[in-house]
Design a protein around this nucleic acid. Structure first.
Length: 340
DNA sequence: TCTGGGGTCCTAGGACCC
DNA sequence: TCTGGGGTCCTAGGACCC
C-alpha cells in the first residue's frame, strides 16, 4: 500500500502558473487579502512555513510573521483540475488507485518493489505535472499514511513502515500522532493513563470502555498496533452531502438579513447540486454566534427528493425558524444531504 | 491574531410500530 | 394497576480530517 501526498498543494499549483513566484513565500487563503478579518491560511509554501506560517493560522497573523509573502485567493476550480491531472498520471501505473481528497491518494496492488514504484511515481508526477509529493509505504492505509509524514521530512520523499518497524518507530510517539486521534481523544486517553502509542498498543481494549464506546475502543488499539484498512476503493467517490457557509466580516443582527443570507446560500447550493445531477433529500442550517457557540438544525424534505433550488431555499428558511437567535451571528451555513 | 470552508462517520435519544 | 423486547426513522451533536 502506498500513500501519495502532494506537497503544499494549493501553493504549488499557484507557483506553477506564476513561475516568478518560485522560491518566494506564498500564502493561499480566503480572498487573498491578508488584512481581512476572520480568514485563515489554507496552504503556505515551504518558504512561508519557514517563517512559522501554517494552515489554519489567521491571515493577519501570517502577514505579521511573513510580511514579504505573496498572498493569493483560494482558487478551488484550478486545484480540482490539477488534482485530476495528477490522479490520471498515477492511474497510468499498474496499480489500483483510491483518490483521497484533492491532494492525496492510496495505491495498492501486488507490488514486488514498492520503493522502486514510489521512485517512478514521484518522477512521473514531477515531470508530467510539475509537482513534488511525499510517498509513504506500508502494509495498510494506516502505515502508509503515517509513513508519508516521515517521507515529508526525508530528502528522498519516500518512507516505509512495516509490521516490524511500526512499534519501534511509533511507540514513543504521543497518541495524538496517530491518524484519526484528535485533541478530544488524546485527553480521554490521557485520563486513562495512555499517552504514548506504545502504551495504547499494549492496552486491553476493555480498559478503554470507561471512556470510549466499544467500537472506538477496539479501533484505537488496532491503529496503535499498526493495523488498519487494506481495501482500495477505485470507484469514484459519490458525495453524501454538499454545503456552503460564510463567516461574515462583521456579525449579523438583523433577522431579515439573516434570512436573506440563508436563502441566498441555499439557492446557490441548490443550483450547484442540480448542475451535478443530484437530488436533495434533507436540508440543514448552521448558525454560529459571536461567542462561537455553534448549532445545527435540519429536516428531511417531506415531499421527497428535489432538484428545485426554490424548494431547497424554502426548506432552509423553515429550518432556520427552529433557531432562537438571540446573539449576533458570525456564521451561517446551509447543507444538503443528497440522494445516493 | 481570536478561531475558514468543505467534508465524513459515529453515537445517542426519542418517536413510533409490532 | 406502571412497564418486555426488537426494530426503524429522524434529529442533534461530537469528533476528526484536509
Amino acid at each position: 500500500m502506498l500513500h501519495v501526498d502532494l506537497d503544499q498543494f494549493f501553493a504549488s499549483v499557484e507557483v506553477l502558473r506564476r513561475p516568478e513566484l518560485r522560491g518566494r513565500p506564498v500564502i493561499v487563503g480566503g480572498s487573498g487579502d491578508p488584512e481581512r478579518a476572520r480568514t485563515v491560511v489554507a496552504t503556505a509554501s515551504r518558504e512561508a512555513r519557514a517563517h512559522g506560517v501554517h494552515s489554519g493560522m489567521p491571515m493577519r497573523l501570517a502577514a505579521r510573521k511573513c510580511p514579504g509573502a505573496v498572498f493569493l485567493p483560494t482558487d478551488m476550480p484550478a486545484y480540482q483540475r490539477k488534482s485530476a491531472e495528477v490522479m490520471d498520471i498515477l492511474r497510468s501505473f499498474p496499480v489500483r488507485l483510491e483518490v483521497f481528497g484533492l491532494d492525496e491518494a492510496f495505491l495498492g496492488g501486488e507490488l514486488h518493489d514498492p520503493h522502486a514504484l514510489a521512485v517512478s511515481l514521484r518522477a512521473a508526477v514531477l515531470e508530467r505535472a510539475g509537482l513534488t509529493c511525499a510517498i509513504g509505504i506500508g502494509r495498510n492505509k494506516n502505515q502508509a499514511k503515517i509513513a508519508a509524514r516521515f517521507a515529508k521530512n526525508d530528502p528522498s520523499g519516500i518512507a516505509t513502515l512495516t509490521d516490524e518497524t511500526w512499534l519501534p518507530v511509533m511507540g514513543p510517539h504521543p497518541v495524538g500522532d496517530l491518524w484519526g486521534v484528535g485533541p478530544k481523544t488524546v485527553k480521554k486517553l490521557d485520563e486513562l493513563g495512555l499517552t504514548t502509542v506504545a502504551a495504547l498498543a499494549a492496552a486491553d481494549p476493555a480498559a478503554l470502555l470507561p471512556r470510549f464506546p466499544p467500537r472506538a475502543a477496539g479501533w484505537l488499539v488496532v491503529i496503535a498496533r499498526g493495523g488498519g484498512d487494506t481495501e482500495i476503493v477505485t470507484e469514484p467517490w459519490v458525495a453524501r452531502s454538499r454545503s456552503k457557509e460564510i463567516t461574515f466580516p462583521a456579525d449579523l443582527t438583523d433577522r431579515a438579513e439573516i434570512a436573506a443570507q440563508v436563502e441566498a446560500l441555499a439557492r446557490a447550493l441548490g443550483e450547484e447540486v442540480v448542475a451535478d445531477g443530484r437530488q436533495v433529500i434533507r436540508v440543514g442550517v448552521k448558525v454560529r454566534s459571536s461567542s462561537f457557540y455553534t448549532r445545527t438544525r435540519e429536516a428531511k424534505l417531506r415531499d421527497g427528493p428535489t432538484t428545485d433550488p426554490g424548494v431547497i431555499a424554502a426548506a432552509a428558511l423553515t429550518v432556520l425558524d427552529k433557531f432562537e437567535i438571540t446573539r449576533p451571528v458570525r456564521l451561517l451555513g446551509v447543507r444538503a444531504d443528497l440522494l445516493l
